[in-house]
Amino acid sequence: MLPGRRARGFTLVELMVSVTLLAILLAVAAPSFASWIRNTRVRTTTQVLQDGLRLAQAEAVRRNRTVSFFLTNVANPTATSAAAANGSNWGVRTLTLITGETAELVRSGALAGVVAGVNITGPSAVCFNAAGQQVANATEGCAIDPTSPTVTYDVAHGSAVAGVDRSLRVTASLGGRVRMCDPAKTLSATNPDGC
């Protein structure tokens, strides 16, 4: 070093203090990050369910025939895949009108691989008629409860922390209105995202 020049850089003590402060900040933020990840997975699953229901409804109107949105545990759903409540995959298919006609798979997708740890509670299938309204179909497993005709899918993370993590809900009304809402809130003018 030349005389009169001051050394530049960090001392070992300054570096250790910085690393210690960084470690403390990460330890404090880690639980928030974990909760954020769980909530993002729930939101993604709920969005996929809502989009799938809306796709089935739009296809029913476009094709002028009954279309089904279904959950299944089949890895690559087909038009003949069995519907299963709380399935890990989803599909949209047309329903047959006459004997001998084959159903057509419109689109399908995965839920389990994208959103690990998320639980879905709801029916195995929802059917829409040519007017975009819910319709019962015993063969497909689409049922309408006369006392509560709105179909509900509740989505929550399996390891959710009460009061920290949130669950979401997708509903499809008898008239065909599909929406996502927060079951922890009551629907009102100040809470339009409430259920």
Score class of each variant (00 low, 15 high):
Ala79Gly: 07
Cys195Pro: 02
Pro123Ser: 12
Pro77Lys: 06
Val13Ile: 15
Ala34Cys: 00
Val151Ile: 09
Thr66His: 07
Val28Ala: 14
Leu71Pro: 01
Ala30Cys: 00
Arg107Asp: 13
Thr80Asn: 14
Glu101Leu: 10
Lys185Gln: 13
Ser108Ile: 00
Ala136His: 03
Arg107Gly: 00
Gly9Val: 07
Arg65Trp: 03
Gly91Trp: 06
Ala172Gly: 03
Phe128Pro: 01
Ala27Pro: 04
Cys127Ala: 15
Val178Gln: 07
Arg6Lys: 09
Leu105Met: 10
Arg8Gly: 04
Met16Ile: 11
Gln57Leu: 10
Arg54Ala: 04
Ser188Leu: 08
Ala79Arg: 05
Ala27Ser: 14
Met180Ala: 13
Ala130Glu: 15
Ser148Tyr: 00
Lys185Cys: 11
Asn86Trp: 00
Asn86Asp: 11
Val151Pro: 00
Asn76Ala: 15
Arg107Leu: 13
Gly194Arg: 05
Ala85Cys: 02
Ser148Pro: 00
Arg5Thr: 03
Asn39Lys: 04
Thr147Asp: 13
Ala82Leu: 12
Arg54Cys: 02
Pro77Gln: 07
Thr186Arg: 10
Val161Ala: 11
Asp145His: 02
Pro146Asn: 03
Ala23Lys: 01
Thr190His: 00
Gly9His: 03
Thr80Arg: 05
Ile98Val: 13
Pro146Lys: 03
Ala60Met: 08
Ala143Met: 01
Ala23Met: 13
Arg62Pro: 00
Thr152Lys: 12
Ser159His: 02
Pro31Cys: 05
Thr94Ile: 09
Arg93Tyr: 03
Tyr153Arg: 02
Ala30Met: 11
Ser173Val: 04
Arg63Val: 05
Ala110Asn: 14
Ala136Ile: 04
Cys195Asp: 06
Ala85Thr: 09
Pro31Tyr: 11
Ala112Ser: 13
Ser68Asp: 08
Val61Pro: 00
Ala116Ser: 14
His157Phe: 11
Pro149His: 04
Arg8Asp: 01
Thr186Met: 03
Thr11Ile: 08
Asn64Ile: 09
Ala58Lys: 08
Arg93Ser: 09
Ala7Phe: 05
Asp193Tyr: 07
Gly176Trp: 10
Pro183Glu: 06
Val67Gly: 06
Arg107Pro: 00
Asn129Thr: 07
Val178Ile: 15
Thr66Tyr: 01
Phe128Asn: 06
Asp145Met: 02
Asn89Trp: 02
Ala85Asp: 01
Val48Lys: 10
Val135Lys: 04
Thr150Ala: 14
Ala112Thr: 10
Thr190Gly: 09
Thr46Gln: 10
His157Asn: 06
Arg54Val: 03
Glu14Thr: 10
Ala172Leu: 10
Pro183Met: 11
Leu97Trp: 01
Val17Phe: 02
Gly109Lys: 08
Ala23Thr: 10
Ala156Glu: 12
Trp90Ser: 02
Ala112Lys: 08
Thr186His: 03
Leu111Ala: 04
Phe69Ile: 02
Pro123Asn: 09
Pro31Ile: 05
Glu104His: 06
Val114Phe: 14
Ile120Thr: 07
Ser18Val: 15
Ala136Trp: 05
Ser18Thr: 15
Ala83Glu: 06
Ala160Asp: 03
Ala56Gln: 06
Asn73Gly: 12
Gln47His: 13
Cys127Asp: 15
Thr121Asn: 13
Pro192Tyr: 05
Arg93Gln: 08
Ala116Pro: 11
Ala143Phe: 01
Gly163Glu: 08
Asn191Glu: 14
Glu104Gln: 15
Arg54Lys: 12
Ser68Cys: 12
Leu174Ile: 11
Leu22Thr: 14
Ala34Met: 11
Ile144Thr: 07
Ser188Lys: 04
Val92Tyr: 07
Val161Arg: 13
